[in-house]
Simulated assay, not measured.
Amino acid sequence: MKKVEEKLMGLKKEYENMQVPDEGAEIMKKAMDRAKADKRRAETKKQWNRAVLGAAAAIAILVILPNTNEKVAYAMERIPLIGKIFDAITIRDYTYDDGHNSAEVKVPKVITEEEESKEHPAVNQVNKSVDEYTKELLTQFENNMQMEGYQNLDVSYEVVTDNDTWFALDIAAVQTEASGYEFHRFYNIDKITGENVELKDLFKEGSNYLSMISEEIKKQMQTKMSEDEGSIYWLDNQDYPEDNFKEIKADQNFYLDNEGNLVIIFDEYEVAPGYMGVQRFTIDKEVISDILK
């Protein structure tokens, strides 16, 4: 505990000397106070509550902000925590509006506590991918600004799963021109192995997981259509048979929920008309238990 106290005192001095915006300083102070409270709880209950970290984002106009938010994130990463704690914070916030084109893009960074501040390969890989992905979306937005008309880009994120085994981050984007289009990208980290996980990594080698999951999704689609006449899925479109849903992709968007069930996500227009929006299908873990690793 003495080492923890020394780290906290060092962070306090670093915090007092660091030049950051008022909102950043307030966030750091709150995070350090939270770490002290966690330390006291660990001594009495041997259990730490998950620390919720947030970062204030300054307004920018399609320009990468100075490293003020990066400094805040760096300081918060060094606060001593116990356990495999993951979280996502906003490190950049792009805002643009010229009356015809508008964008609001929040760029997250996954942070975690590692022994002796060792780097976490999976987290680094996710953060690199997220950074590249959001830059691609902004580049496309800037290129489209040369065209006539109105367009809007909104990018946000959400931690959809965070338990003892899994951490899943959802990057959601909505592009609007003549009509809107919502699409997602999910990142899944296995906390036990410390690796990024793709859909195929969940199943035994040689298993027919693609067809098994697809058949379960088709059943759920049929059930939804029979219960709600407003629900339409492209299963038997005679006019455009090429649009009919046949099987999920090998790299289909997914995550495991907090109960361990598999959730498959289809972007808008992928398996249904646009008014149906993004579609999520939960596959009970018991349905696929025989082929899970």
Score class of each variant (00 low, 15 high):
Ile89Met: 12
Phe167Ala: 08
Trp48Thr: 07
Val126Ser: 00
Ala58Leu: 04
His100Lys: 15
Leu65Arg: 07
Ala58Ser: 06
Ile248Gly: 03
Asn258Tyr: 02
Gln125Trp: 01
Asn144His: 13
Leu202Pro: 04
Glu242Gln: 13
Glu132Cys: 03
Glu247Leu: 09
Asp267Pro: 04
Glu205Thr: 14
Glu26Thr: 10
Ser289Gln: 15
Tyr181Cys: 01
Val197Thr: 14
Asp98Tyr: 05
Leu53Lys: 08
Lys191Ala: 04
Ile232Lys: 10
Ala178Asn: 11
Leu62Phe: 02
Val110Pro: 00
Asp131Leu: 01
Lys128Phe: 10
Trp48Asp: 03
Asp170Leu: 13
Asp97Lys: 07
Leu138Ala: 02
Val287Ala: 12
Thr176Asn: 09
Gly206Asn: 04
Arg34Asp: 14
Gly10Arg: 11
Asp228Glu: 04
Gly194Pro: 00
Ala37Arg: 07
Ser129Ala: 15
Ala103Cys: 02
Ser117Glu: 13
Glu104Gly: 08
Phe245Pro: 08
Asp284Gly: 14
Tyr209Glu: 06
Val63Arg: 13
His184Leu: 04
Ala55Met: 11
Asn67Leu: 09
Gln252Asn: 07
Glu114His: 02
Tyr74Gln: 09
Val63Cys: 01
Ala172Arg: 12
Glu5Cys: 01
Gln279Glu: 10
Asn17Ala: 14
His100Leu: 13
Tyr181Asn: 12
Val4Tyr: 13
Arg34His: 06
Thr134Ser: 05
Glu119Ser: 12
Gln47Phe: 03
Ala31Lys: 08
Glu23Ala: 07
Phe141Met: 05
Tyr181Phe: 14
Ile189Cys: 03
Lys224Tyr: 04
Glu215Trp: 03
Arg92Tyr: 13
Ile91Arg: 12
Tyr94Met: 00
Asp170Pro: 04
Ile189Asn: 02
Glu268Thr: 06
Gln175Ala: 10
Leu235Pro: 08
Ile288His: 02
Arg78Asp: 13
Ser207His: 04
Gly230Pro: 00
Pro21Asn: 04
Tyr74Ser: 11
Ala173Lys: 12
Glu114Asp: 05
Val105Phe: 12
Ile79Cys: 01
Arg41Ile: 09
Phe254Asp: 05
Tyr94Lys: 01
Gly180Leu: 05
Glu23Ile: 00
Phe203Gly: 11
Gly10Thr: 11
Glu247Asp: 03
His184Gln: 12
Asn188Leu: 08
